[in-house]
């Protein structure tokens, strides 16, 4: 399946990368082994996207890629040339919170806050997908976002409230 031979000098060919980041063009020079998550946090300074497990198991790194929720830890940055990336920093409209952000505050849908960026980005997409209506369906749709504080009932309530208001 794999060979153990390695080139004497590993290739480190950095490449230019331009993508749309929260509505603006952003250009970087990136090594191939940089993930989208590390690009956002380390290169773009957008530390609202959290690095939890970094292995695709917790959902803390969830961002929107062309409007679809995606785990930024399991994606190479270079793969996303030209894509529209939305992070938690890109949701509010100036000083006005996004409806899902406001609902999370209203319904006390977090405690420590570490998972919250990912929860909110995932929730925005779940609402846009429009397939989760009952509390059970919302829980299933949100199962890729873990919350170790156990704020799940309030997260479900926040999402249900936004959907009900819509």
């Amino acid at each position: 399946m794999r060979t153990t031979e390695r080139p004497a000098v590993p290739p480190r060919s950095s490449a230019p990368l331009t993508l749309r980041l929260n509505g603006r063009d952003a250009t970087f020079v990136v090594e191939p082994n940089v993930t989208l998550l590390d690009l956002l946090r380390e290169r773009a300074g957008l530390t609202g996207t959290k690095k939890g497990c970094d292995r695709g198991q917790c959902g803390a790194c969830t961002v929107l890629v062309n409007g679809r929720r995606t785990l930024s830890c399991l994606a190479l940055a270079l793969v996303h040339a030209g894509d529209e990336i939305t992070t938690i920093e890109g949701l509010a409209n100036g000083g006005e919170l996004h409806a899902v952000q406001a609902a999370f505050v209203e319904h006390d849908a977090f405690q420590c806050g570490f998972c919250t960026s990912g929860q909110i980005l995932s929730a925005v997409a779940v609402i846009a997908e429009g397939r989760a209506h009952s509390d059970a369906e919302i829980s299933e749709a949100m199962s890729g976002n873990l919350c170790r504080c156990g704020a799940y009932p309030n997260i479900v309530a926040a999402i249900a409230a936004v959907q009900g208001a819509g």
Partner: peptide
């Protein structure tokens, strides 16, 4: 040792684990 990158979800995970060690990733 080349690997195709389609969705990346298994490949990136296993590259972080050092289980997959491609010389070249073909997107």
């Amino acid at each position: 040792a080349a690997r195709f990158y389609a969705g990346g979800t298994t490949l990136v995970d296993l590259m972080k684990a050092d289980v997959e060690r491609p010389q070249r990733v073909v997107d």
